[in-house]
Simulated assay, not measured.
Amino acid sequence: MLKLVGAVLVLGAGTLAGFYQAQQFAARPRQLRELILALQRLETEISYGFTPLPDALERIGVSLREPLKSLLASAALYMRPDYGLSAQDSIRKALGEYWKRTSMKSAEREVLEQLSGVLGTSDRQDQIKHIALAVGQLKHEEAAARDDQVKYEKMSKSLGLLIGALIVILIF
Rank of each mutant, 00 (worst) to 15 (best):
A134P: 09
R30Q: 10
Y83Q: 02
W99T: 09
I91H: 00
A56I: 04
L9F: 03
L159H: 02
Q114H: 13
D55W: 07
S74V: 00
I169W: 08
S158Q: 10
P81I: 06
Q137D: 07
A132V: 06
M104I: 06
L11R: 02
D82N: 05
K129N: 05
Q23K: 11
R59A: 07
V135Y: 08
A134Y: 01
P54C: 03
T44L: 12
K3S: 12
R146C: 11
L77H: 07
V10L: 06
L170M: 04
A22P: 08
F25W: 13
P29L: 02
K69G: 00
D147V: 13
A75W: 06
Y78C: 05
Q23F: 08
G12V: 10
A87G: 00
G117Y: 02
G117M: 01
L85R: 02
Q23V: 03
A145K: 13
G117T: 09
I169Y: 13
L39E: 03
L115S: 04
R28L: 10
A27C: 12
L133H: 00
L68G: 01
R124C: 10
L159Y: 15
G18Y: 03
L77W: 05
S103C: 11
I171R: 03
K69E: 12
D123A: 13
K105C: 10
E113H: 01
A107R: 12
L133G: 00
L64V: 04
T102D: 08
G12M: 11
R80W: 00
L119W: 13
A165E: 04
I169F: 06
K151D: 15
L170D: 07
R101T: 11
L85N: 08
L35Q: 05
V8A: 11
R33K: 07
Q114K: 10
F25A: 10
G120L: 09
Q23E: 09
P29F: 00
M79S: 04
I169T: 12
I60G: 02
M79V: 04
A107L: 12
G84Y: 06
A94Q: 03
Q23L: 06
S70E: 02
L11F: 14
L64P: 04
K100S: 13
A144N: 13
D89R: 15
S103W: 01
P67V: 03
A94L: 08
P29I: 04
L133K: 04
G12I: 10
G96H: 01
Q31P: 11
I131P: 06
Y98G: 00
R65V: 01
V5T: 11
I128A: 15
D126S: 13
V8S: 15
